[in-house]
């Protein structure tokens, strides 16, 4: 089963680092080579994917309209659900990207006796929003390791995130949220027979990698504490291309390996949805194809068809018999 494979893979990651760093002492490999390589793969991979999509033409304006079109002046149109101008398209995209607009529409169909009913079902939206925003905030917080002096905005995020002052160091709310959201997203795949049916190993793997990433991070912060000064020296070294592998516990290397693995995996997996959504022609085009002429794709050829004159020749007798006009122009041109 996919989930088992994903779990085994992630455990194997842990073992590899444990053996590699803890036993064989390959600190430079896991601390410097792997992260740099992963980052390169991520960058080049993502740029490659984007170019790969961008170079394919969009031959037709296949907007999925989810609201009233612009037509008669007195009919109220929906600017966000059926954008007519490019500005409105941008607004629609912003809603999709920042509020998961389409996911928010989600319904759950149920068959009650002979009747179908469709209830609102926002759990997936909530889980996805919680997960993505927590992940995003955690990434932002991490900038404190990569900047000197740390910008105030990052410090503020940090303070808000640890607002409740639970434990020492303070527990981050986003850590709790992301673990809860990941658990929901995972259990959902297992519990719902239909989702279990469609889920692949490659659907469980990113979830587990992020689990590994978050859990190793939490463990490092609260249980197997590492020397933060050394870590910061190391991360600043990475930024300035003068890296020196830190002399800290294996747990840090495990954490670092998870983020490296995730970065390297990103461009080749479904995680590319992050940029792919911007390329989706059903969402990123304006619904104005009757008002504005859009150039066809370079490969598009005007169709060949039976012209009127050819058709008239073929049906001439019937046309005359039934008293339909014969177009004399067809003969003039010859």
């Amino acid at each position: 089963m996919g989930a088992v494979f994903a779990l085994v893979t992630v455990l194997a990651f842990v073992i590899v680092v444990y053996v590699g760093v803890g036993v064989a002492g390959l600190k430079s490999l896991f601390g410097i080579v792997v992260p740099y390589a992963a980052f390169l793969v991520f960058l080049i991979g993502m740029v490659y994917r984007m170019i790969d999509w961008a170079k394919v033409p969009v031959p037709f304006r296949i907007v999925t309209t989810c609201g009233q079109q612009k037509s008669l002046r007195w009919i109220k149109r929906s600017r966000l659900e059926s954008p007519y101008t490019n500005f409105e398209v941008v607004l629609r995209m912003l809603l999709e990207v920042f509020a998961f607009r389409s996911l928010f529409r989600n319904l759950k169909a149920e068959l009650k006796g002979p009747n179908l009913v469709y209830g609102s079902y926002k759990w997936l939206w909530l889980g996805a929003i919680a997960f993505h925003y927590a992940f995003f905030t955690i990434l932002l917080r991490h900038l404190r390791f990569f900047t000197y002096p740390v910008p105030e905005s990052i410090q503020i995020i940090d303070q808000i995130d640890s607002f409740f002052h639970i434990g020492l160091p303070h527990l981050y709310m986003t850590d709790v949220v992301i673990l809860a959201a990941l658990t929901f997203l995972f259990l959902r795949r297992l519990a719902d027979p239909r989702l279990r049916y469609i889920s692949l190993a490659s659907d469980y793997l990113p979830l587990f990698m992020i689990y590994g990433l978050v859990i190793s991070g939490v463990l490092m912060r609260h249980f197997f504490k590492v020397d933060v000064t050394q870590v910061k020296e190391f991360t600043m070294g990475l930024v300035h291309f003068k890296p020196k592998a830190p002399d800290v516990g294996v747990i840090f290397y495990i954490h670092l390996f998870f983020i490296s693995a995730l970065m390297a995996y990103f461009p080749f997996s479904k995680l590319v949805h992050m940029v792919g959504v911007f390329f989706s022609p059903t969402r990123n085009l304006a619904n104005n194809s009757r008002a504005v002429r859009h150039e066809p794709a370079p490969w598009w050829k005007k169709p060949k068809f039976k012209t009127y004159c050819e058709w008239q020749e073929e049906f001439k007798e019937q046309l005359i018999e039934s008293g339909q006009p014969i177009d004399e122009d067809c003969y003039k041109k010859k």
Binding site: D52, V56, P59, L103, S199, P281
Partner: peptide, 23 residues
């Protein structure tokens, strides 16, 4: 795949979230 961006992108980005399943 080289002519229709829709086809190419749709092949690449589905996360199998299942939101469409019962639609």
């Amino acid at each position: 795949l080289s002519k229709y961006r829709s086809f190419k992108v749709f092949m690449d980005i589905c996360v199998r979230c299942g939101a469409c399943a019962d639609k």
